[in-house]
């Protein structure tokens, strides 16, 4: 949602031609959509005031402001649109931009804008995907936020077609997944390993993964 939002201390409303719609009315409409997962990106002014009403299980809610008192026209929307077209938003370079990647990209760009322009930041975007109203600015495993958003693709610029997978190829794909899992495990063990040891093991796994991928692509 892009536009002007208001908060009178009780209700958040998005400005529309005719009567403005409250967050509650918006939530009711969204609840009627029979989707398993939903992403709501409210980029209006004062949008932070809508989080508590919109937060729901299996719904990711992103607001461009942290509360209803941040009333200036946000710049968040500008960078959200950039996230949909800038390859840099795809942080893990897997060809898919998830809601979490887009949020992080946009949040970073917004903060940089205010810093560079030497302006007091008048918006602080938040995300929640746990049905809880305590949305956060930096979703991560530590605060339990961002898990659903990390698995919610919003852009797949590269076509991913899984057709005619031969048994040999399937074997290689399984091997690839195993290596990826090993890399993830190694990352968790990073603190327990010496720097050299970690680097050596990581390089070996990445090399193995690259070779496997090259074979898959051949």
């Amino acid at each position: 949602m892009i536009g002007h939002g208001t908060f009178d201390g009780t209700d958040y409303k998005i400005n529309l031609p005719g009567p403005d719609m409250t967050a509650t009315e918006l939530a009711e409409l969204l609840n009627k959509i029979p989707a398993q997962r939903q992403l709501v990106v409210n980029m209006t002014s004062a949008s932070g005031a809508s989080i508590a009403t919109l937060a729901k299980k299996d719904r990711i809610v992103i607001a461009s402001t942290k509360s209803g008192t941040e009333k200036n026209a946000p710049v968040f929307a500008r960078y959200w649109v950039d996230a949909l077209r800038d390859p840099a938003a795809d942080a893990d370079k897997n060809g898919t931009v998830t809601a979490l990647e887009a949020f992080r990209y946009t949040e970073r760009k917004t903060a940089s804008y205010f810093e560079a322009e030497k302006l007091l930041a008048t918006e602080h975007a938040l995300l929640t995907d746990t049905a809880k109203a305590n949305a956060v600015r930096d979703p991560k495993p530590d605060n339990g936020q961002g898990i659903l958003a990390a698995a919610f693709p919003i852009l797949r610029p590269q076509t991913q077609v899984a057709s005619n997978v031969t048994p040999e190829k399937q074997k290689m794909l399984t091997r690839k997944q195993d290596i990826e899992a090993k890399i993830d495990r190694l990352k968790y063990q990073k603190a327990a390993l010496s720097e050299d040891e970690y680097k050596q093991q990581l390089t070996a796994l990445l090399l193995e993964l690259a070779r496997t991928q090259a074979e898959i692509d051949r």
Binding site: D92, K93, N94, E180, L206, L209
Partner: peptide, 10 residues
Amino acid sequence: EAAPDFKPAQ
């Protein structure tokens, strides 16, 4: 390390 599937880097 951050993007294991980044093909050009691979």
